[in-house]
Computed example of a mutant assay.
Amino acid sequence: MDEHEALGLASHRHYKGGLYRFLFEARHSETEETMVVYEHLWPHARAPWVRPAELFYGRLPDGRLRFQPLGGEEA
């Protein structure tokens, strides 16, 4: 998939430049922590990933969002 195709599916851009599609939130079976399930689209092979919601929605030390919603909205 090239960057243009990925942009058609992507919901977020990682601070390092990659494109991702938010899929859904889930709950960890042991800790009940909210997790975000998302798909890496570009520049590497498509693959599902999961990370704690706190990290997915979180900010870097410099204040930038780790995953910036496309369209420029800030959480």
Rank of each mutant, 00 (worst) to 15 (best):
Ala10Lys: 04
His14Ser: 10
Arg51Thr: 14
Trp49Arg: 15
Glu74Ile: 13
Gly17Leu: 02
Arg27Val: 15
Met1Ile: 08
Ala45Ser: 08
Gln68Trp: 04
Leu60His: 10
Ser29Leu: 07
Leu70Gly: 01
Gly18Ser: 14
Phe22Ala: 04
Ala10Phe: 04
Ala53Gly: 03
Arg64Asp: 15
Pro69Phe: 02
Met35Asn: 05
Tyr57Glu: 10
Arg59Tyr: 13
Pro69Gln: 06
His4Trp: 07
Asp62Thr: 09
Glu74Thr: 08
Leu23Trp: 02
Glu33Ser: 05
Leu9Ala: 05
Glu5Lys: 15
Glu25Ile: 03
Leu65Gly: 05
Phe22Cys: 06
Arg21Asn: 01
Leu9Cys: 05
His44Tyr: 02
Glu33Lys: 08
Arg51Ala: 13
Gly72Ser: 08
Leu41Met: 09
Tyr38Glu: 05
Ala45Met: 05
His44Trp: 00
Arg27Ala: 05
Gly8Gln: 14
Ser29Lys: 14
Glu33Trp: 02
Met1Thr: 10
Ala6Lys: 13
Leu7Ala: 03
Glu25Lys: 10
Phe56Thr: 13
His44Cys: 00
Pro48Ala: 02
His4Gln: 15
Pro69Met: 03
Gly8Thr: 07
Pro52Ser: 09
Phe67Ser: 01
Gly8Asp: 10
Tyr20Lys: 00
Leu65Pro: 07
His14Arg: 07
Glu74Phe: 03
Leu19Thr: 09
